[in-house]
Design a protein around this nucleic acid. Structure first.
Lengths: 128, 128
DNA sequence: TAGTTGTCCTATATGATCTAGGACAATAGG
DNA sequence: CCTATTGTCCTAGATCATATAGGACAACTA
């Protein structure tokens, strides 16, 4: 696992670390039990203060993505029963979609136009 | 035109004003030539400092959404030949869609599953 | 025992955001 | 001409999030 930090990004550094870990886990590049690099190592390599990296790891643990123990390091957690997370994921995504559709209605966009736009973005985003 | 400002939102107040004007224009609630409320009036009604509102109006003028003259006020600009407002609406919606797709990717959802979910919500939301 | 690791702590710096209010030119309407 | 309105410009300060800096310590490993 290596991090790419952009100091000029509007996104905070600690958030970039969080997102990159989450993405790596979702993409399968990091699997349950895999160890994350040590906070101080990440800090050195990315030239970021160690407290900033620690903040990211702390948040990741609070969200249940990793487990961490002093002296050992931080490790990707087991997923647990897949069905539960799956249902919750669907609910979260449905809310986002509803919000998007509400905006489309405000713009008086036709249904076909919205679908076309979704497909257009899908082809660009390269899902999975 | 009236504004709804949420001081607890992570989105800056001036950005909320900008977005609400843009959305109103894109949705057709504000049309070319329509006058925006005076900066000081908006500030009073929303209990926001007048400089904050002025910053939003300034940004809207720089983006070509409105034209403004001291002593007169601010007015929605003509669209021009290209359908600028329409294009802006598409961009706003594309951003929302991208955000949604990013979340879907985090959830490791297949493309087909996302599309199915969009269609499911579409049929419930009754677009237009 | 010595080194690694995560954690906690205080202190400081910076930038964005927001507030506060003074001052002024352009405009509109008597 | 006079007055009120409107947008604009200015300085000043408060607050918050982010990030840096480094000291200290407990848990763990070899």
């Amino acid at each position: 696992m290596l991090f790419r930090i952009d100091l000029n990004s509007p996104k905070p550094v600690y958030q970039q670390v969080i997102d990159q870990v989450k993405y790596a886990v979702a993409a399968g590049r990091l699997r349950a039990g895999d160890r994350l690099p040590a906070i101080r190592d990440v800090a050195t390599q990315t030239r970021v203060n160690r407290n900033t990296v620690a903040r990211a790891y702390l948040e990741l643990e609070r969200e249940g993505v990793i487990r961490t123990n002093a002296g050992q390091g931080s490790f990707v957690r087991d997923e647990g029963p897949a069905g539960v997370h799956r249902a919750r994921a669907r609910r979260v995504l449905a809310d986002l979609i509803d919000e998007m559709l509400a905006q489309a209605r405000q713009f008086q966009m036709a249904e076909a136009e919205v679908i076309a736009l979704v497909n257009e973005r899908l082809s660009k985003v390269e899902l999975e």
